[in-house]
Amino acid sequence: MEKVKKKLSENILDKISMDFLRNQVLKNAYGNDDTVIAKLDPRILLVWYLFFAIVPWFVNDVVFLAGCFILVAATTILARVAGLVLVLFGLGVFSQTGYMFIVSLFFGGNWETIVPLLIMTLKVATVSLASVTVFSGLDPDRLSNGLMWYGCPERLSFSISYAYRMLPMLMEEFQNVLLSYRLRGNAPDSTTFGGKVKYLIYQIKVIVHAFYPLMLNTAKRSRTTVEALEIKGYRYAAVNKEVKKMKLSSLKVGYNDMMFAAISFLCVAVTIFTTTII
């Protein structure tokens, strides 16, 4: 018991340290560029996503939804999504509908009450997993190219890939600022229960405060970046159709893309077939 208590009382900054968070975020953004999913054509993947993000909302058939869920879960595994994202996903789904599902089981719920909840949970889970696969499995740069092909403004796609380049720097800087607060600040004593609550509040406060210096530092940096973009012809490219064509010429639908689309189609077809038979 004593051990469990100690474990629980360890605080957020120690347990889920910034270092750990940073590592997870980076892993998610850069660590899985060699997976099957990452190599797919972003355009195909976006259409695929559109299907699994919209269709489940309009279907209420358990078998179909379960089929979709299994398919999407398989792609998530293929994309090797970082652990933290999956934990967040699990928490999200559970807090939406999952808990009701369990509660109803406890309070004498029968098949009739469970089915609608199961359907709801499956819907939410499928849609969120599809988003996780596409937005974290695909590297942001390819994603932004895909979006641009579908006519999203150049500015949006540039912002996505720029954020992708800046992310590690910002995380490191945030970590340093946070450490400054930590080393110079005076944390409340956390031996008693009241102290622990105070300590938690203190830590959240520090995290919020740390954003202010981070923003100022970023603003300072951006001066050079803006000038450099000008020199590198960013504005010139934004109005030139030729450049857009060149950028998008790297997108090619290959054998793997066809296979992926075919397998997904097949799975969906099989589930539809199964429901009609049942």
Binding site: I231, G233, Y236, V243, M246
Partner: peptide
């Protein structure tokens, strides 16, 4: 401004 090395080195040429 770009995430990978070759991307950044060729970025200006692409823009022009």
């Amino acid at each position: 401004v770009r995430p990978t090395v070759l991307d950044d080195a060729s970025y200006a040429c692409m823009n022009y």
